[in-house]
């Protein structure tokens, strides 16, 4: 008919580029580990809370509010900082020869996000409905929330993987989702369940990112020398 340009392939390759060096996995992994650290700090060490309350007593309640905001913004600030570092690493080394791309904000299709929310709600309702049949501990509800959050996150990763044909996300989504289920049996400590969830997902993503980076690094170096 006329000269063909495979636009689908070009679109897919451009979207995959963002995930080709593993830095995005590393960034998300570190952010989740930091969230786990904040969670652990708040839940396991109530002395932090006492310190915050004391701040309020000494300097007024605004001091407590500001301290809490600072604490909760830590992972956000860290993620933004990592974004800057990631851009700099890419500009100087990883993408120096191949060029920079600012990826599209919508990478997970909306129907997958809706499915993730749907799974969250349905699993939560079913979990509560069957609570009487299960041997539940004091923290059953929180453990259940951790499990369904894990499933929803897993579904989002699987959706991202299928959409972009980046199969490691499908594998991570399945592994993380299944592993999250184990949290239902860990009802002895809310702190532990939350920490395991954050650390688990964080470590899965961090490991994946490091493996990918290690694999592509020699190719990038070669391209750099050739260029």
């Amino acid at each position: 008919m006329f000269e063909q340009v495979d636009t689908k392939k070009i679109i897919l390759k451009t979207k995959q580029y963002e995930f080709a060096d593993g830095l995005r996995d590393i960034q998300l992994g570190i952010a989740l580990i930091l969230m786990g650290a904040v969670w652990f700090g708040l839940m396991y060490q109530p002395s932090w809370l006492m310190f915050m309350i004391q701040l309020g007593r000494d300097y007024g309640r605004w001091a407590t509010i500001v301290a809490f905001l600072l604490l909760f913004s830590l992972p956000v600030v860290a993620t933004a900082g990592m974004q800057r570092i990631m851009e700099s690493v890419r500009r100087r080394w990883l993408w120096r020869e191949t060029g920079m791309v600012k990826s599209s904000r919508i990478l997970v299709p909306s129907h997958i996000n809706i499915l993730a929310v749907f799974i969250f709600i349905v699993a939560l309702i079913l979990g509560l409905r069957f609570q009487s049949f299960l041997k539940t501990g004091d923290f059953y509800l929180m453990s259940l929330i951790m499990v369904v959050v894990g499933w929803s996150f897993g579904v989002s990763l699987i959706g991202l993987g299928i959409n972009l044909k980046v199969w490691r996300y499908v594998i991570m989504g399945v592994i993380g989702g299944v592993a999250s289920t184990a949290l239902i049996f860990y009802q002895s400590s809310l702190t532990g369940a939350g920490l395991l969830s954050f650390l688990g997902w964080g470590l899965i993503l961090l490991t994946s990112g490091l493996i990918v980076l290690k694999r592509v690094w020699p190719e990038i170096r070669e391209e750099g020398h050739a260029g």
Partner: peptide, 27 residues
């Protein structure tokens, strides 16, 4: 858009928020 080179450029930019000259050159 129909011209093949411009179609390829449009496809790259459609898939991203922005891309630099070097990336477009390579793609």
């Amino acid at each position: 858009i129909h011209e093949p080179s411009r179609l390829a450029i449009m496809a790259v930019l459609f898939a991203s928020e922005s891309a630099d000259f070097k990336f477009l050159l390579n793609t």
